[in-house]
Amino acid sequence: MSQFRAKKLDLGCFINIRVIRDHTKRKVFAEHEPERQALRYIIRNTTLPQRTRAQAQLQLSQMHCYTRGTQIKNRCIMGGKGRGVFRDFRLARFQFRMNALAGNLPGVKKASW
């Protein structure tokens, strides 16, 4: 347990297990994405032999689930919420409002007409 505390996560936000898991998923996805793209290219290339394409399909299906882009969920970087998150800012609605009113988001201001 002390080993985990010594390791500093540079997430810059409220940390709970979901945020840590999301951070891990993003890191693993970034590491393995070129390999997944290469395997997908081999699978879709009809000029290659069927055996090679089948082996590539098997390798792709045996990769860890965190290497898939669909596993990544947009979470608020301030509070860790998984719903109502603005994709451009990676903030939940309430955190976005508080930061915008405080002037912490450049180029964002309260609308008035």
Rank of each mutant, 00 (worst) to 15 (best):
R26Q: 14
Y66N: 08
H32I: 02
L101R: 14
H32V: 03
A30C: 07
Q95N: 14
P34K: 07
G69A: 10
A102D: 15
T47P: 03
F86V: 12
K25W: 01
R51E: 14
Q37R: 08
M78F: 07
L39R: 00
I42L: 02
I72T: 02
I42E: 01
L48A: 00
H23K: 10
E35H: 12
K81Q: 13
K25D: 06
W113Y: 07
K110N: 03
E31V: 13
E33R: 13
T47E: 15
A111I: 04
K25P: 00
L58F: 06
I43A: 07
K109D: 04
K81F: 11
P106E: 15
E31Y: 11
T70K: 10
Q71C: 06
K109C: 02
L9R: 06
F94Q: 08
K73E: 12
A92H: 08
T46H: 07
Y66P: 01
R93F: 13
K73Q: 13
I42W: 00
I43E: 02
F29K: 09
E35I: 10
G79I: 07
R90T: 09
N99P: 00
M63I: 04
A102C: 15
R97F: 04
V19I: 12
I43S: 04
F89N: 05
S61Y: 03
I20C: 11
D22A: 14
V108H: 03
T70L: 07
I17T: 15
E33C: 07
D88P: 06
I15Q: 09
N74F: 06
F89V: 08
F14W: 14
Y41A: 09
V28P: 04
Q62V: 00
A111N: 02
R21L: 09
Q62R: 03
E33G: 03
Y41G: 06
A100H: 00
L58D: 11
R51M: 09
F96P: 01
D10W: 09
N104D: 11
T47A: 15
H23E: 13
R83S: 15
F89R: 06
N16Y: 10
F29V: 06
K73F: 08
D88Y: 08
M78V: 13
F96G: 01
E35Q: 13
Y66A: 09
